[in-house]
Design a protein around this nucleic acid. Structure first.
Lengths: 210, 210, 210, 210
DNA sequence: AATGAATGAGGTTTCATTCAT
DNA sequence: TATGAATGAAACCTCATTCAT
């Protein structure tokens, strides 16, 4: 079996990360044992250490991969949407389209990782980098919309970006353990309503002068 | 004599919970050992088990206590504020007034607990109860505002309530590990702006000073 | 059982060290598991960690204790012997009197520790300290003999001291695995002969003038 | 073709043993992994198992080879030295000429092997054989000296031989971790002095220059 | 009620050895 | 013959919990 291709190894690494995600999101970082991951994948405990240095290494690489995948996916899709408004709409639609269970799974992992990294100097720096990528992606859209005249000129793009993510995470957080998909969708819809009402040029208040 | 004893016991329980909060928020649930708590409090490991059944028991009682304390505190304060708008304003002000470090500490505990409880049937039910109290508190305010004509009639009070908490938690989450107090304040301010713009009947900013 | 006396704890520590010595000398450092020591002593694995920080800690404390015990024992006995010659004679007699199996056991431990410490910065410093005590003890005797006129004036006391220990260890090393007690005794005897012939005033060479 | 193959195989075996010596002496038997050896040599882990059955096998073969090499080397050199005294002098000179670091490295390996073998029946027998070769080599020299009248007739050649090796090993042991080359040389010198003073018929120092 | 020594299950990681390629 | 991924036993150490004092 040895002398395998680089592609094989990459595939193996990915498979381990995928299996680890299942375990971490299901049982938490502390609650997941290397044995859990190994058994879940049907491989030996030792083989995991051929590809990763430690449990924490798996955790970190997993987050890295997810963030890159997510940002790249959005960036690619954004190219198919002309205006900033359409791009934001696309994002909202993605939230709506995603099965709630998937969202929960991923969110548990994300949240726990965020807390975990906030207690670890080394992870902190890397996590900041990850976050910058995601924030930067939206920041660009907001700026694009302000330049194109879609959004109000006097907005602070950075603040709006922060709000955008904050609300998404907050909503997901509140749906972490209960709530139906229908409730979730209505909340996303309302948030979209609230956001556009706040940033849009054309969402001019009805009869108000401010 | 029994009365004194009971008071003493309650005091002891509270002290342990307080010490446990320091530890849990600082090092996380898994990262905190019973020894950590005992040493932090200057008591013996054994004495902790006189007052609580297990580590998880401490964790759960602590959250219970915090939730009750917070909701009761808000409810009491609300009585001093006439309108729904003033009540919401009071809440925003509380967020602003709270030192960022305190917020971070507490949020880490809350978030971790939320995730933790989402993986445990028993904790789930109790956590739902806790959340209902907090949500209910805001729900009342929103309804009050809608009835008084302060807020738009066509709002879905439940959705607005969910959004209110979701944004608060989302913002706190994003400030978990970095960001200055100034940035935080600006974000809270912007959120307030966005929220009122969304729910208010005629949101006439008073000289734009808020 | 808790709230035990300091004496109890010291006794426990000593018992663990004694049990560890049996294991380390019998199976070597690497070959000895914490479980071996625990089982040998009839205590739980965990309790060992109540008294020592790690396997290496046990190893180091054990050597420390043995060295101190040995040096103190010799120093005390030396007081009963007037001349330097008598003191050296006493040492030789100790080697003769000691059961060969005991010597082997202890030597295995000592030798392995010496090698082990030569590969570890931290242990090195401490081991040097231990060695200085043992060397210093003999150095005093040699100097005493030179001052009293028992030994030759032109000797380098430090060199003689080194030789003294080196030969003892060398002999013990060669008897590590085989050889009878009788052979061992004859070798010790011959060494004594050789040493005194070298250092003694009265061992004046027969007819030689140097 | 088979001849070439056999030579190649022998060369490979030797290379592995050489690399293993570097690792074993540097990190100890337990501290050396098969990977260490493989990486040090730039070969694969698997290839090592083509030439040796196990880690212990390498260890044993290595000692075997070293012992044979050493004894053969001395025996060859001895032919160039006429008298027993000259032969012993040659050995002393070898100790002096050898860089201290080399000596340390090799001694660590030898000592650890000695201890290791003392705990293993099979290795014991083989080690005894090795030792007999080395002891026998010196034994011959001592006997030669006694027959030629260089050394005292009443000596027990076996005992002197044992002492000879014991002192050498003892000195090396004491220089295992510290001490300068200068100190080492003086000790070797003093040992030589002591030994000749003990075994020589008429040990007339030539102007006291050695 | 308070103490803290004792317990032992369970976790992470290492590494000699095997074997498919 | 060479490779190195895979295996899994086994090691060290932690820590929630118990219980004798």
């Amino acid at each position: 079996m040895p002398k395998v291709t680089e592609a094989y190894k990459q595939q193996k690494r990915d498979a381990i990360l995928e299996g680890a995600l299942d375990c971490f999101s299901g049982k938490g970082y502390a609650g997941t044992t290397i044995d859990d991951i190994a058994i879940h994948l049907g491989v030996s405990k030792g083989s995991i250490y051929t590809y990763f240095q430690s449990k924490e290494d798996i955790y970190i690489r997993l987050m890295e991969k997810r963030m890159n995948t997510m940002v790249n996916s959005f960036k690619t899709k954004f190219q198919a949407h002309e205006s900033a408004t359409e791009k934001l709409n696309y994002m909202f639609q993605r939230f709506i389209d995603q099965p709630l269970e998937d969202l929960r799974r991923l969110l548990k992992f994300h949240l726990e990782f965020t807390i975990h990294s906030s207690r670890n100097e080394d992870m902190q720096a890397q996590m900041d980098g990850n976050n910058q990528k995601a924030l930067g992606m939206i920041l660009e859209v907001i700026r694009e919309g302000m330049e194109s005249g879609e959004f109000r000129q006097e907005l602070d793009a950075g603040i709006v970006t922060s709000l955008f993510w904050a609300v998404r995470d907050g909503i997901a957080l509140h749906f972490l353990s209960d709530g139906t998909k229908d409730q979730f969708n209505r909340l996303i819809h309302e948030w979209k309503e609230m956001l556009f009402r706040y940033i849009n040029m054309s969402y001019a208040p009805r009869g108000n002068t401010w």
